[in-house]
């Protein structure tokens, strides 16, 4: 519309603002306006995601650790990392519904003190205990239709279903999530799925300090004082509106910052309660698997070969 200068009175401006707000509200209700996107803080990853993690959609996180079964914590940890980015947004006060896998399934139960250690308040979790992954996915749509929740996390473990099933589920779930604005996360093993907003493949990685940093003369000493930052090799297999991307992410739990370079900034946070690496009492060197072994015999130190003590 033609905005002429003589109409630039404050009242007119306010009317224009109200009108635009009304327009955008109507567009949101119509579903034409895109949902909010949460930037994760890593520029390349955010551009691959076309701006950030989309709220009000369903994302799938798969485990990608190949032969190394036993990294169940890493997948849950990444889900919590994304949840914390989401919860840092304003207006996210609702409860989080989590449907964990059965306690007998081998990955264990969710532990509240550990969740609190990663910064997620367990008091705002609503746990839905359904032993079979089929039932969990069946109620996923119902839960996604509820307004007022911050997020929904469903663990489907290692279900074997056809790609048709996943396509139908994804379509229904995305519609439900768009209608209510609740974000959904699916956790489990890699499946041939399509239709979700993003599909991630997660693998745990070692958080190593960069060698040769001027601050640390003794790398071992710095390793002792370094906090345990969750680290993952993340592969963004598919993103709607974005592109595939691979990187290694490190999450600083205290400041809730994700970074993708292994800088070993020594943090002011406190180390763990007890010693990190065991220190040999006599030589005051940390003990690694290559450390020479000796044992005490009648008060004399005797150097010996590497002995294996099975615990």
């Amino acid at each position: 519309m033609a905005a002429t200068n003589q109409n630039a009175s404050p009242k007119y401006e306010e009317k224009r603002r109200n009108f635009h707000k009304l327009q955008s509200d109507v567009a949101v209700l119509d579903g034409r306006l895109l949902r909010r996107r949460v930037p994760l803080g890593v520029d390349d990853l955010d551009s691959a995601l076309a701006g950030g993690l989309a709220l009000g959609r369903v994302h799938m996180l798969c485990a990608n650790w190949g032969g190394n079964i036993g990294a169940h914590g890493a997948l849950t940890g990444f889900a919590i990392c994304l949840l914390r980015q989401l919860l840092a947004q304003p207006d996210q006060d609702g409860p989080i519904v989590w449907c964990p896998s059965s306690s007998m399934a081998g990955s264990g139960i969710l532990y509240g003190a550990g969740l609190a250690a990663l910064g997620l308040d367990p008091g705002r979790l609503l746990i839905v205990d359904a032993p079979s992954p089929n039932r969990r996915l069946a109620v996923l749509e119902d839960i996604l239709r509820t307004k007022g929740l911050s997020a929904v996390v469903v663990e489907y473990d290692s279900m074997r279903k056809s790609s048709d099933y996943w396509m139908r589920l994804a379509r229904r779930a995305q519609l439900a999530a768009e209608a209510s604005g609740t974000t959904g996360f699916l956790l489990g093993w890699p499946v041939a799925a399509s239709g979700f907003e993003t599909i991630w493949k997660i693998k745990p990685a070692i958080d190593e300090p960069a060698i040769g940093d001027a601050h640390n003369m003794n790398m071992r000493a710095s390793m002792t004082l370094m906090p345990w930052r969750p680290t993952w090799d993340v592969e963004l297999a598919h993103a709607r509106g974005g592109r595939a991307y691979e990187t290694r992410l490190i999450w600083d739990v205290h400041t809730n910052i994700i970074s993708n370079n292994t800088n070993n900034t020594m943090h002011e946070s406190q180390p763990d309660l007890a010693i990190d690496t065991p220190i040999d009492r006599h030589s005051n060197q940390p003990i690694t698997p290559d450390h020479p072994v000796y044992y005490m015999h009648d008060g004399l130190r005797v150097d010996g070969e590497r002995r294996r003590n099975a615990g």
């Binding site: 169940h72 914590g73 849950t76 264990g108 969710l110 003190a113 550990g114 609190a116 910064g119 205290h254």
Partner: peptide
């Protein structure tokens, strides 16, 4: 809570 010194580490899955 995270900065508190007296918190021993706890796993997220038990």
């Amino acid at each position: 809570y995270l900065h508190s010194e007296m918190v021993p580490p706890r796993p997220i899955r038990l």
